[in-house]
Design a protein around this nucleic acid. Structure first.
Lengths: 211, 211
DNA sequence: CAATTGACTGACCATGTGGTCAACATTAAA
DNA sequence: TTTAATGTTGACCACATGGTCAGTCAATTG
């Protein structure tokens, strides 16, 4: 009993501190990049002494790894599975819906991910080579079957996936630009639905799945 | 005459060195980010002594400014103007064509631009607030007129512009990911045309401009 | 109680980096 | 040839930053 309590207690403190650090680190990495984010700046943002940061994470690289891991988890959860039973229309609808919601809910994850890829994906090469490539091939095959069955127009499935990825993530990654152009301070609830409707509408029609 | 020659000659050396530096700097900034790119690494890549870099550009910040300026020029040139006479179909076609070609021709510019925006656009706020916002409003109005005239379906013009921006730039910014997924080493000539056909086809149909 | 363990931190240091500068080299002008 | 301007560079420095470490404190255990 006392053992359990002990473990749980220190575990909580540990987890809580680590979480606080990871959140602070995410923000710093987005704002300053990997090199630009200093351990001190992360510490300040997390309101902890620098040495405490290095107590929980051996070094800066390790913090970054942890942040990236969290990001990949987001990616994985937010992917919105495309299943054969749905048929192309519902499948694409679900896919866009999931991706847009994730973009608006976790913009920092999307941003960190984007920066990694832009800079050459040094830490994510394996992820793309194995997991992602497999996922894309699998889903592309599914789309191809629908096309062969005449259930949708003959559009390249792989490029279709890229199109959905890019157009949905855009609202997270280019948040600043979009808000500035629309002369707004922040996104609002309605924006999410509006974007979903817009993208779903235009892409479904583009695939010959409307009218 | 001799004056002209002198100016031209020293000008040439000056311009040539500066160009070499800017190219090297672009690569470094993409690969390492602003903080991560060191003056030394830029010097190495340009094959010049560090002090020579600082002779042509007062400091690192200045190099970055110059690179950004060049990037904006790219953006401006590659924008492919949307003119009223063309009508929606040709206008969108031209727009996509120009944007895709620029993405494949100057991926570094696109990448640097993207990283700036993602990190909060500290150096580009003004550009977006004035120039870009005006451009988008202007073009959106044009699309709206076409919509009101029944020349194209009622899709939100601003989001349409975002869609075209995001889907076209994606091939530059996420180059690494795309190539890895497609299991390829580099883009080839045909890719550009393929992407143009794909995006034009699906977006035009999405706007009710095909069939 | 004493002992052990884990959490935490100020002080410190080695290194890397941006930027300066004095000296030197090359070219153009007088 | 002399003078001046422009280009070029090695050597140097102040400073920020990642990371270590010795030691303190608090809680748990035997």
């Amino acid at each position: 009993m006392s053992v359990v309590n002990t473990v749980k207690k220190s575990g909580n403190i540990r987890v809580k501190s680590q979480q606080k650090i990871l959140i602070a680190a995410s923000t710093e990495f987005v704002l300053q990049g990997f090199k630009g984010a200093t351990v001190q700046s992360i510490a300040d943002r997390a309101d902890l002494p620098k040495a405490n940061i290095l107590y929980y994470f051996k070094n800066k690289e390790n913090i970054y790894h942890a942040v990236l891991e969290h990001t990949l988890q987001m990616w994985d959860e937010g992917i919105g599975d495309i299943s054969p039973e749905d048929g192309p229309k519902v499948a694409i609808k679900k896919f866009i819906d999931a991706k847009v919601r994730m973009s608006f809910k976790h913009p920092e994850s999307s941003k960190i991910y984007a920066m990694e890829i832009i800079q050459g994906a040094q830490h994510l090469k394996d992820f793309a080579r194995t997991y992602q490539r497999k996922w894309v091939r699998e889903k592309a095959k599914l789309f191809q079957q629908w096309i062969d069955n005449g259930e949708m127009l003959n559009v390249d499935p792989v490029h279709l996936i890229f199109l959905i990825w890019s157009s949905t993530q855009h609202y997270a990654d280019f948040e600043t630009q979009i808000l500035t152009i629309m002369n707004r301070a922040d996104y609002e609830e309605e924006d999410v639905e509006e974007v979903i409707v817009f993208l779903t509408d235009i892409i479904l029609r583009g695939c010959g799945l409307i009218k």
